[in-house]
């Protein structure tokens, strides 16, 4: 019975483009799986449906492209500063930094890694995660330690970098060349 179905589906895919798209979509849709609840403080993992596309481009490039598009970050760090006064740099950088903050906050939901204020006391328990705490100063003997927060650290509460679906040829492009068109040939087109 499955053999018959397979042939019928195969035949219809060949003849019916709409049906083919439908099957393609169904085929690529990942099975729904239960996302285990995250332990407190861990960033939420991207939802399983979002991992569907082929990773055509590194997320790092996507992040840089977003920072450039929305905040002109690449323009800022690529420009030699020696030619400008502090006031000139300040006027430009204020906006760039504000927009960078907006992008980073949206993608990563940045928060201090501990609730304690800098300068306030903190206890580091036995069996602490060295990835979470870096101990400086008089570190002698085994944990637990009592200390003071020097830097509250940062953590991401999510990781939602945009998806990119462009063509392979532009996978290294952070910002497209902008061209102001001054004349064009005849145009005749319709959207689909």
């Amino acid at each position: 019975m499955r053999l018959g179905l397979a042939f019928r589906v195969w035949w219809r895919i060949l003849r019916d483009a709409q049906f083919a798209l439908l099957v393609d979509e169904m085929w690529r849709k990942p099975p729904k799986e239960a996302v285990p609840s995250e332990p407190d403080g861990e960033p939420a993992r991207p939802k399983p449906t979002k991992a569907k596309e082929k990773p055509a481009r590194s997320d790092a490039i996507n992040l840089l492209a977003s920072l450039q598009r929305e905040a002109r970050f690449v323009d800022m760090v690529q420009e030699p500063l020696a030619d400008y006064s502090d006031a000139q740099v300040g006027a430009a950088v204020r906006d760039v930094l504000r927009d960078c903050h907006e992008v980073l906050d949206r993608f990563f939901g940045l928060e201090p890694a501990v609730h304690q204020q800098e300068g306030s006391p903190i206890d580091v328990a036995d069996g602490y995660d060295p990835g979470r705490f870096r101990l400086v100063g008089a570190v002698e003997g085994p944990p637990p330690f009592a200390g003071r927060v020097v830097h509250h650290g940062w953590k991401a509460t999510r990781c939602e970098v945009p998806q990119w679906t462009g063509r392979a040829g532009s996978r290294w492009i952070l910002a497209p060349v902008e061209v102001e068109v001054t004349s064009s040939g005849s145009e005749s087109e319709r959207p689909q």
């Binding site: 002109r72 323009d75 800022m76 690529q78 030619d83 000139q88 006027a91 430009a92």
Partner: peptide
């Protein structure tokens, strides 16, 4: 409040006006 307009081309700081 200072309103700044960033330079248009890749020269960001040089083209900024406020």
């Amino acid at each position: 409040y200072s309103i700044s307009i960033l330079g248009r081309g890749s020269r960001l700081i040089g083209g900024t006006v406020s």
